[in-house]
Design a protein around this nucleic acid. Structure first.
Lengths: 215, 215
DNA sequence: TAGATTGTTAATCGATTAACAATC
DNA sequence: TAGATTGTTAATCGATTAACAATC
Protein backbone atom coordinates (compact mmCIF):
# COMPACT_ATOMS: atom_id res chain seq x y z
CA UNK A 1 0.00 0.00 0.00
CA UNK A 2 1.55 3.24 -1.10
CA UNK A 3 1.30 6.56 0.66
CA UNK A 4 0.61 8.30 -2.61
CA UNK A 5 -2.79 9.85 -3.06
CA UNK A 6 -5.04 7.29 -4.65
CA UNK A 7 -7.98 8.85 -6.37
CA UNK A 8 -6.69 11.63 -8.52
CA UNK A 9 -9.44 13.10 -10.69
CA UNK A 10 -9.28 12.38 -14.38
CA UNK A 11 -9.08 16.05 -15.28
CA UNK A 12 -6.17 16.54 -12.94
CA UNK A 13 -4.33 13.67 -14.62
CA UNK A 14 -4.81 15.34 -18.00
CA UNK A 15 -3.56 18.66 -16.72
CA UNK A 16 -0.56 17.10 -15.02
CA UNK A 17 0.51 15.72 -18.36
CA UNK A 18 0.06 19.16 -19.90
CA UNK A 19 1.90 20.92 -17.09
CA UNK A 20 4.81 18.56 -17.53
CA UNK A 21 5.14 19.30 -21.23
CA UNK A 22 5.22 23.00 -20.46
CA UNK A 23 7.70 22.49 -17.65
CA UNK A 24 9.98 20.43 -19.90
CA UNK A 25 9.92 23.23 -22.41
CA UNK A 26 10.70 25.78 -19.66
CA UNK A 27 13.54 23.57 -18.49
CA UNK A 28 15.05 23.53 -21.99
CA UNK A 29 14.94 27.32 -22.00
CA UNK A 30 16.84 27.43 -18.73
CA UNK A 31 13.91 28.55 -16.60
CA UNK A 32 14.40 27.12 -13.11
CA UNK A 33 11.31 28.37 -11.25
CA UNK A 34 7.74 29.12 -12.22
CA UNK A 35 4.83 30.71 -10.35
CA UNK A 36 1.46 29.03 -10.30
CA UNK A 37 -0.14 31.98 -12.08
CA UNK A 38 2.43 31.82 -14.89
CA UNK A 39 1.89 28.11 -15.42
CA UNK A 40 -1.85 28.74 -15.28
CA UNK A 41 -1.65 31.55 -17.82
CA UNK A 42 0.14 29.34 -20.33
CA UNK A 43 -2.65 26.81 -20.04
CA UNK A 44 -5.49 29.30 -19.98
CA UNK A 45 -6.68 28.27 -16.52
CA UNK A 46 -6.58 29.81 -13.05
CA UNK A 47 -3.68 29.71 -10.61
CA UNK A 48 -5.97 28.17 -8.00
CA UNK A 49 -6.57 25.22 -10.24
CA UNK A 50 -2.86 24.65 -10.72
CA UNK A 51 -2.26 24.82 -6.98
CA UNK A 52 -5.15 22.54 -6.21
CA UNK A 53 -3.96 19.97 -8.75
CA UNK A 54 -0.55 19.98 -7.11
CA UNK A 55 -2.12 19.75 -3.69
CA UNK A 56 -4.07 16.70 -4.82
CA UNK A 57 -0.88 14.87 -5.77
CA UNK A 58 0.79 15.89 -2.53
CA UNK A 59 3.30 18.30 -4.02
CA UNK A 60 4.43 21.32 -2.10
CA UNK A 61 7.31 23.71 -2.44
CA UNK A 62 8.83 25.49 0.51
CA UNK A 63 9.64 28.75 -1.19
CA UNK A 64 7.73 31.75 -2.45
CA UNK A 65 9.87 31.86 -5.57
CA UNK A 66 7.52 29.63 -7.48
CA UNK A 67 7.85 25.94 -8.14
CA UNK A 68 11.24 24.42 -8.89
CA UNK A 69 10.79 23.32 -12.50
CA UNK A 70 13.06 20.30 -12.34
CA UNK A 71 11.67 19.05 -9.05
CA UNK A 72 8.09 19.42 -10.27
CA UNK A 73 8.86 17.57 -13.51
CA UNK A 74 10.16 14.65 -11.47
CA UNK A 75 7.26 14.75 -9.06
CA UNK A 76 4.69 14.66 -11.84
CA UNK A 77 6.66 11.79 -13.32
CA UNK A 78 6.38 9.90 -10.03
CA UNK A 79 2.61 10.14 -10.35
CA UNK A 80 2.08 9.60 -14.07
CA UNK A 81 4.86 7.27 -15.11
CA UNK A 82 5.15 3.58 -14.59
CA UNK A 83 8.30 2.23 -13.05
CA UNK A 84 9.21 0.47 -16.28
CA UNK A 85 8.84 1.66 -19.88
CA UNK A 86 5.39 1.02 -21.33
CA UNK A 87 5.38 -0.49 -24.80
CA UNK A 88 2.82 0.73 -27.29
CA UNK A 89 1.75 -0.54 -30.69
CA UNK A 90 -0.02 1.34 -33.45
CA UNK A 91 -2.66 -0.58 -35.37
CA UNK A 92 -3.15 0.83 -38.86
CA UNK A 93 -0.14 2.49 -40.44
CA UNK A 94 -1.92 5.02 -42.66
CA UNK A 95 -1.24 8.71 -42.40
CA UNK A 96 -2.60 8.97 -38.88
CA UNK A 97 -0.59 6.01 -37.62
CA UNK A 98 2.55 7.36 -39.21
CA UNK A 99 1.92 10.83 -37.82
CA UNK A 100 1.58 9.51 -34.29
CA UNK A 101 4.60 7.23 -34.61
CA UNK A 102 6.86 10.02 -35.85
CA UNK A 103 5.50 12.43 -33.33
CA UNK A 104 6.37 10.13 -30.45
CA UNK A 105 9.71 8.94 -31.63
CA UNK A 106 12.55 10.24 -29.51
CA UNK A 107 10.33 12.12 -27.08
CA UNK A 108 12.21 10.23 -24.40
CA UNK A 109 9.28 9.50 -22.16
CA UNK A 110 8.37 6.22 -20.50
CA UNK A 111 5.91 5.54 -23.30
CA UNK A 112 7.43 3.96 -26.39
CA UNK A 113 5.86 3.01 -29.67
CA UNK A 114 7.79 -0.14 -30.53
CA UNK A 115 5.66 -1.78 -33.19
CA UNK A 116 3.06 -1.13 -35.83
CA UNK A 117 0.55 -3.48 -37.41
CA UNK A 118 -1.20 -3.38 -40.76
CA UNK A 119 -2.46 -5.75 -43.43
CA UNK A 120 -1.29 -3.79 -46.47
CA UNK A 121 1.69 -5.58 -48.12
CA UNK A 122 3.00 -2.13 -49.05
CA UNK A 123 3.47 -1.37 -45.37
CA UNK A 124 4.23 -4.69 -43.71
CA UNK A 125 7.97 -5.28 -43.46
CA UNK A 126 8.89 -1.60 -43.67
CA UNK A 127 9.78 0.70 -40.80
CA UNK A 128 8.69 4.24 -39.92
CA UNK A 129 11.29 6.03 -37.84
CA UNK A 130 12.75 2.67 -36.79
CA UNK A 131 9.37 1.28 -35.78
CA UNK A 132 8.79 -1.99 -37.66
CA UNK A 133 5.43 -2.73 -39.23
CA UNK A 134 4.18 -6.29 -38.83
CA UNK A 135 1.22 -8.11 -40.32
CA UNK A 136 -1.90 -8.27 -38.15
CA UNK A 137 -1.75 -12.05 -38.47
CA UNK A 138 1.06 -12.02 -35.94
CA UNK A 139 -0.58 -9.54 -33.58
CA UNK A 140 -1.28 -11.79 -30.62
CA UNK A 141 2.09 -13.53 -30.54
CA UNK A 142 4.03 -10.28 -30.98
CA UNK A 143 2.08 -8.50 -28.24
CA UNK A 144 3.18 -11.31 -25.97
CA UNK A 145 6.79 -11.44 -27.18
CA UNK A 146 7.35 -7.69 -27.22
CA UNK A 147 5.43 -7.06 -23.99
CA UNK A 148 3.03 -4.55 -25.50
CA UNK A 149 0.50 -3.06 -23.08
CA UNK A 150 -1.31 -0.37 -25.00
CA UNK A 151 -2.52 0.06 -28.59
CA UNK A 152 -3.33 3.16 -30.57
CA UNK A 153 -6.06 2.31 -33.02
CA UNK A 154 -5.68 4.14 -36.34
CA UNK A 155 -7.31 1.61 -38.63
CA UNK A 156 -10.13 2.50 -40.98
CA UNK A 157 -13.36 2.80 -39.00
CA UNK A 158 -15.06 -0.03 -40.84
CA UNK A 159 -12.64 -2.66 -39.53
CA UNK A 160 -12.46 -1.34 -35.96
CA UNK A 161 -15.06 -3.78 -34.60
CA UNK A 162 -13.15 -6.79 -35.91
CA UNK A 163 -10.14 -5.75 -33.85
CA UNK A 164 -11.86 -5.90 -30.49
CA UNK A 165 -11.52 -9.65 -30.01
CA UNK A 166 -7.84 -9.87 -31.01
CA UNK A 167 -7.07 -6.93 -28.73
CA UNK A 168 -8.79 -8.62 -25.79
CA UNK A 169 -7.20 -11.99 -26.52
CA UNK A 170 -3.75 -10.50 -26.79
CA UNK A 171 -4.06 -9.16 -23.27
CA UNK A 172 -3.89 -5.46 -24.15
CA UNK A 173 -4.69 -3.26 -21.15
CA UNK A 174 -5.35 0.12 -22.74
CA UNK A 175 -6.74 1.37 -26.05
CA UNK A 176 -6.59 4.83 -27.56
CA UNK A 177 -9.19 4.66 -30.30
CA UNK A 178 -9.08 7.21 -33.12
CA UNK A 179 -11.62 5.50 -35.32
CA UNK A 180 -15.12 6.89 -35.28
CA UNK A 181 -16.60 3.62 -34.04
CA UNK A 182 -17.01 3.72 -30.25
CA UNK A 183 -15.57 0.52 -28.83
CA UNK A 184 -16.59 -1.29 -25.67
CA UNK A 185 -14.13 -3.48 -23.84
CA UNK A 186 -14.56 -5.52 -20.68
CA UNK A 187 -13.84 -3.91 -17.34
CA UNK A 188 -10.14 -3.91 -16.73
CA UNK A 189 -9.29 -2.56 -20.18
CA UNK A 190 -9.04 1.21 -20.39
CA UNK A 191 -10.48 2.80 -23.53
CA UNK A 192 -10.47 6.38 -24.73
CA UNK A 193 -12.42 7.14 -27.87
CA UNK A 194 -11.44 10.26 -29.81
CA UNK A 195 -13.38 10.76 -32.97
CA UNK A 196 -11.92 13.67 -34.92
CA UNK A 197 -15.29 14.41 -36.46
CA UNK A 198 -16.74 14.94 -33.01
CA UNK A 199 -13.90 17.24 -32.00
CA UNK A 200 -14.49 19.38 -35.05
CA UNK A 201 -18.25 19.35 -34.72
CA UNK A 202 -17.87 20.51 -31.15
CA UNK A 203 -15.68 23.46 -32.15
CA UNK A 204 -18.12 24.32 -34.95
CA UNK A 205 -21.08 24.21 -32.56
CA UNK A 206 -19.51 26.61 -30.09
CA UNK A 207 -18.44 28.94 -32.89
CA UNK A 208 -22.05 28.98 -34.03
CA UNK A 209 -23.26 29.59 -30.47
CA UNK A 210 -20.81 32.47 -30.05
CA UNK A 211 -22.09 34.09 -33.20
CA UNK A 212 -25.72 33.73 -32.20
CA UNK A 213 -25.04 35.29 -28.81
CA UNK A 214 -23.28 38.28 -30.32
CA UNK A 215 -26.10 39.29 -32.63
CA UNK B 1 -34.84 34.74 -30.46
CA UNK B 2 -35.19 31.05 -31.11
CA UNK B 3 -37.28 28.65 -29.11
CA UNK B 4 -34.44 26.12 -29.11
CA UNK B 5 -32.81 25.29 -25.80
CA UNK B 6 -29.90 27.59 -25.33
CA UNK B 7 -27.40 26.23 -22.88
CA UNK B 8 -26.68 22.69 -23.88
CA UNK B 9 -23.87 21.19 -21.79
CA UNK B 10 -20.57 20.62 -23.54
CA UNK B 11 -20.64 16.91 -22.84
CA UNK B 12 -24.08 16.61 -24.35
CA UNK B 13 -22.83 18.31 -27.52
CA UNK B 14 -20.02 15.76 -27.78
CA UNK B 15 -22.39 12.88 -27.30
CA UNK B 16 -24.90 14.24 -29.81
CA UNK B 17 -22.18 14.18 -32.42
CA UNK B 18 -21.36 10.60 -31.46
CA UNK B 19 -24.99 9.53 -31.46
CA UNK B 20 -25.42 10.95 -34.92
CA UNK B 21 -22.51 8.99 -36.32
CA UNK B 22 -23.97 5.82 -34.89
CA UNK B 23 -27.43 6.69 -36.19
CA UNK B 24 -26.06 7.37 -39.66
CA UNK B 25 -24.43 3.97 -39.62
CA UNK B 26 -27.71 2.38 -38.45
CA UNK B 27 -29.53 4.19 -41.22
CA UNK B 28 -27.16 2.77 -43.83
CA UNK B 29 -27.88 -0.71 -42.49
CA UNK B 30 -31.60 -0.13 -42.90
CA UNK B 31 -32.37 0.14 -39.19
CA UNK B 32 -35.34 2.49 -38.82
CA UNK B 33 -35.84 2.60 -35.03
CA UNK B 34 -33.55 2.34 -32.04
CA UNK B 35 -34.21 2.09 -28.29
CA UNK B 36 -32.40 4.39 -25.89
CA UNK B 37 -30.74 1.41 -24.20
CA UNK B 38 -29.42 0.11 -27.52
CA UNK B 39 -27.94 3.46 -28.46
CA UNK B 40 -26.53 3.70 -24.95
CA UNK B 41 -24.99 0.25 -25.15
CA UNK B 42 -23.15 1.07 -28.35
CA UNK B 43 -21.61 4.09 -26.64
CA UNK B 44 -20.93 2.40 -23.33
CA UNK B 45 -23.17 4.73 -21.36
CA UNK B 46 -26.56 4.44 -19.67
CA UNK B 47 -29.96 4.74 -21.32
CA UNK B 48 -30.88 7.49 -18.87
CA UNK B 49 -28.05 9.59 -20.14
CA UNK B 50 -29.18 9.19 -23.73
CA UNK B 51 -32.75 10.12 -22.82
CA UNK B 52 -31.64 13.09 -20.77
CA UNK B 53 -29.43 14.37 -23.60
CA UNK B 54 -32.40 14.17 -25.95
CA UNK B 55 -34.62 15.85 -23.41
CA UNK B 56 -32.12 18.71 -23.12
CA UNK B 57 -32.34 19.40 -26.84
CA UNK B 58 -36.12 19.16 -26.77
CA UNK B 59 -36.45 15.94 -28.70
CA UNK B 60 -39.25 13.55 -27.99
CA UNK B 61 -40.74 10.64 -29.82
CA UNK B 62 -44.34 9.64 -29.47
CA UNK B 63 -43.91 5.91 -29.76
CA UNK B 64 -42.58 3.14 -27.57
CA UNK B 65 -40.85 1.56 -30.53
CA UNK B 66 -37.68 3.48 -29.91
CA UNK B 67 -36.49 6.59 -31.67
CA UNK B 68 -37.03 7.02 -35.39
CA UNK B 69 -33.46 6.96 -36.69
CA UNK B 70 -34.00 9.32 -39.60
CA UNK B 71 -35.97 11.83 -37.59
CA UNK B 72 -33.39 11.85 -34.81
CA UNK B 73 -30.53 12.34 -37.27
CA UNK B 74 -32.27 15.40 -38.62
CA UNK B 75 -33.10 16.71 -35.18
CA UNK B 76 -29.51 16.43 -33.98
CA UNK B 77 -28.50 18.18 -37.19
CA UNK B 78 -30.85 21.04 -36.37
CA UNK B 79 -28.93 21.53 -33.12
CA UNK B 80 -25.35 20.91 -34.19
CA UNK B 81 -25.18 22.14 -37.76
CA UNK B 82 -25.01 25.65 -39.05
CA UNK B 83 -27.48 26.73 -41.66
CA UNK B 84 -24.71 27.12 -44.21
CA UNK B 85 -21.68 24.92 -44.83
CA UNK B 86 -18.72 25.76 -42.58
CA UNK B 87 -15.40 26.02 -44.34
CA UNK B 88 -12.34 24.61 -42.64
CA UNK B 89 -8.63 24.89 -43.36
CA UNK B 90 -5.83 22.63 -42.23
CA UNK B 91 -2.57 24.31 -41.27
CA UNK B 92 0.39 21.97 -41.67
CA UNK B 93 0.08 19.29 -44.30
CA UNK B 94 2.27 16.62 -42.75
CA UNK B 95 0.97 13.13 -42.04
CA UNK B 96 -1.55 14.36 -39.49
CA UNK B 97 -2.91 17.08 -41.74
CA UNK B 98 -3.21 14.66 -44.62
CA UNK B 99 -4.86 12.04 -42.42
CA UNK B 100 -7.50 14.49 -41.26
CA UNK B 101 -8.11 15.84 -44.75
CA UNK B 102 -8.60 12.41 -46.26
CA UNK B 103 -10.69 11.29 -43.36
CA UNK B 104 -13.11 14.16 -43.81
CA UNK B 105 -13.34 14.20 -47.53
CA UNK B 106 -16.70 13.08 -48.82
CA UNK B 107 -18.25 12.61 -45.39
CA UNK B 108 -21.00 14.85 -46.65
CA UNK B 109 -21.51 16.85 -43.51
CA UNK B 110 -21.86 20.59 -43.17
CA UNK B 111 -18.19 20.84 -42.28
CA UNK B 112 -15.85 20.96 -45.26
CA UNK B 113 -12.09 21.10 -45.42
CA UNK B 114 -11.56 23.32 -48.44
CA UNK B 115 -7.95 24.39 -48.09
CA UNK B 116 -4.62 23.47 -46.60
CA UNK B 117 -1.62 25.64 -45.76
CA UNK B 118 2.04 24.81 -45.44
CA UNK B 119 5.43 26.40 -46.12
CA UNK B 120 7.13 23.35 -47.60
CA UNK B 121 7.62 23.84 -51.39
CA UNK B 122 7.12 20.09 -51.76
CA UNK B 123 3.55 20.49 -50.55
CA UNK B 124 2.47 23.93 -51.69
CA UNK B 125 0.67 23.79 -55.04
CA UNK B 126 -0.31 20.14 -54.72
CA UNK B 127 -3.67 18.75 -53.68
CA UNK B 128 -4.69 16.02 -51.25
CA UNK B 129 -8.03 14.50 -52.17
CA UNK B 130 -8.88 17.63 -54.14
CA UNK B 131 -7.99 19.96 -51.29
CA UNK B 132 -5.40 22.48 -52.55
CA UNK B 133 -2.39 23.34 -50.42
CA UNK B 134 -1.43 27.02 -50.37
CA UNK B 135 1.56 28.83 -48.94
CA UNK B 136 1.10 30.31 -45.47
CA UNK B 137 2.11 33.67 -46.95
CA UNK B 138 -1.36 33.89 -48.46
CA UNK B 139 -3.20 32.73 -45.37
CA UNK B 140 -4.99 35.92 -44.39
CA UNK B 141 -6.21 36.83 -47.86
CA UNK B 142 -7.37 33.30 -48.65
CA UNK B 143 -9.25 32.97 -45.37
CA UNK B 144 -11.13 36.07 -46.40
CA UNK B 145 -11.65 35.05 -50.04
CA UNK B 146 -12.65 31.45 -49.30
CA UNK B 147 -14.75 32.34 -46.24
CA UNK B 148 -12.88 30.02 -43.89
CA UNK B 149 -14.18 29.97 -40.31
CA UNK B 150 -12.25 27.24 -38.55
CA UNK B 151 -8.69 25.92 -38.69
CA UNK B 152 -7.24 22.58 -37.69
CA UNK B 153 -3.70 23.13 -36.50
CA UNK B 154 -1.37 20.28 -37.45
CA UNK B 155 1.88 22.20 -37.71
CA UNK B 156 5.00 21.19 -35.83
CA UNK B 157 4.65 22.24 -32.19
CA UNK B 158 7.61 24.61 -32.32
CA UNK B 159 5.93 26.95 -34.80
CA UNK B 160 2.47 26.86 -33.21
CA UNK B 161 2.96 30.09 -31.25
CA UNK B 162 3.85 32.04 -34.38
CA UNK B 163 0.51 31.13 -35.90
CA UNK B 164 -1.62 32.73 -33.21
CA UNK B 165 -1.40 36.28 -34.57
CA UNK B 166 -2.12 35.38 -38.20
CA UNK B 167 -5.07 33.26 -37.07
CA UNK B 168 -6.51 36.13 -35.04
CA UNK B 169 -5.87 38.67 -37.80
CA UNK B 170 -7.49 36.49 -40.41
CA UNK B 171 -10.70 36.47 -38.40
CA UNK B 172 -10.78 32.74 -37.67
CA UNK B 173 -13.49 31.86 -35.14
CA UNK B 174 -12.52 28.35 -34.04
CA UNK B 175 -9.27 26.41 -33.66
CA UNK B 176 -8.75 22.70 -33.20
CA UNK B 177 -5.15 22.49 -32.01
CA UNK B 178 -3.29 19.20 -32.30
CA UNK B 179 0.13 20.59 -31.47
CA UNK B 180 1.36 20.05 -27.95
CA UNK B 181 1.62 23.77 -27.27
CA UNK B 182 -1.51 25.01 -25.49
CA UNK B 183 -2.72 28.13 -27.26
CA UNK B 184 -4.64 31.04 -25.81
CA UNK B 185 -6.88 33.14 -27.99
CA UNK B 186 -9.01 36.15 -27.13
CA UNK B 187 -12.57 35.62 -25.99
CA UNK B 188 -14.75 35.03 -28.99
CA UNK B 189 -12.42 32.49 -30.57
CA UNK B 190 -13.14 28.89 -29.63
CA UNK B 191 -10.09 26.70 -29.01
CA UNK B 192 -9.80 23.02 -28.29
CA UNK B 193 -6.35 21.69 -27.49
CA UNK B 194 -5.75 17.96 -28.04
CA UNK B 195 -2.23 16.87 -27.35
CA UNK B 196 -1.80 13.25 -28.39
CA UNK B 197 0.90 12.76 -25.78
CA UNK B 198 -1.57 13.71 -23.07
CA UNK B 199 -4.20 11.33 -24.41
CA UNK B 200 -1.72 8.48 -24.33
CA UNK B 201 -0.33 9.40 -20.92
CA UNK B 202 -3.84 9.42 -19.56
CA UNK B 203 -4.56 5.93 -20.88
CA UNK B 204 -1.22 4.73 -19.50
CA UNK B 205 -1.96 6.22 -16.09
CA UNK B 206 -5.31 4.50 -15.76
CA UNK B 207 -3.82 1.22 -16.96
CA UNK B 208 -1.24 1.54 -14.21
CA UNK B 209 -3.91 2.40 -11.66
CA UNK B 210 -5.97 -0.62 -12.71
CA UNK B 211 -3.00 -2.89 -12.23
CA UNK B 212 -2.19 -1.48 -8.82
CA UNK B 213 -5.75 -1.96 -7.64
CA UNK B 214 -5.85 -5.57 -8.75
CA UNK B 215 -2.81 -6.69 -6.81
C1' DT C 1 -53.40 -6.13 -18.19
C1' DA C 2 -48.22 -6.59 -17.34
C1' DG C 3 -43.92 -5.36 -19.10
C1' DA C 4 -41.13 -2.32 -21.43
C1' DT C 5 -40.08 2.15 -22.53
C1' DT C 6 -39.91 7.13 -22.23
C1' DG C 7 -39.48 11.90 -20.11
C1' DT C 8 -38.45 14.46 -16.11
C1' DT C 9 -37.47 15.83 -11.32
C1' DA C 10 -34.66 15.25 -7.38
C1' DA C 11 -30.43 13.49 -5.43
C1' DT C 12 -25.72 12.51 -5.86
C1' DC C 13 -21.29 12.84 -7.49
C1' DG C 14 -17.30 15.26 -9.30
C1' DA C 15 -14.84 19.38 -10.68
C1' DT C 16 -14.03 24.36 -10.29
C1' DT C 17 -13.83 28.55 -7.88
C1' DA C 18 -14.08 31.66 -3.80
C1' DA C 19 -12.28 32.75 0.43
C1' DC C 20 -8.75 33.02 3.53
C1' DA C 21 -4.95 31.74 6.85
C1' DA C 22 -0.04 31.01 6.64
C1' DT C 23 4.42 32.08 4.87
C1' DC C 24 8.25 34.35 2.79
C1' DT D 1 6.55 45.55 7.22
C1' DA D 2 3.52 45.20 2.99
C1' DG D 3 2.81 42.63 -0.98
C1' DA D 4 2.92 38.51 -3.27
C1' DT D 5 2.45 33.81 -3.12
C1' DT D 6 1.07 29.29 -1.50
C1' DG D 7 -1.95 25.51 0.48
C1' DT D 8 -6.42 24.24 1.89
C1' DT D 9 -11.31 24.36 3.24
C1' DA D 10 -15.87 25.59 2.04
C1' DA D 11 -19.09 27.00 -1.47
C1' DT D 12 -20.62 26.78 -6.06
C1' DC D 13 -21.26 24.99 -10.39
C1' DG D 14 -21.96 21.33 -13.73
C1' DA D 15 -22.73 16.58 -15.02
C1' DT D 16 -24.49 11.96 -13.94
C1' DT D 17 -27.53 8.86 -11.84
C1' DA D 18 -31.60 7.38 -9.11
C1' DA D 19 -36.33 7.37 -8.74
C1' DC D 20 -40.66 7.42 -10.60
C1' DA D 21 -44.98 8.88 -13.08
C1' DA D 22 -46.85 8.44 -17.66
C1' DT D 23 -47.55 5.92 -21.82
C1' DC D 24 -47.91 2.34 -25.17
Amino acid sequence: MSSLPNNIPEKTIERLSEYRRTLLSCHEQGITHIFSHVLAGIHGITAVQVRRDLMLIGFSSDTKKGYDVEVLIDFIGSILDSRNPVNIAVIGMGHLGQAITKYFNGKGLKLKIIAAFDIDPEKVGKTVDDVPCYHMDHFEELVEDLDINIVVLCSPTNVASELVVPIINAGIKGVLNFTSKPLNFPRGIVVENYDITTLLEKVAYFVKENEENNL
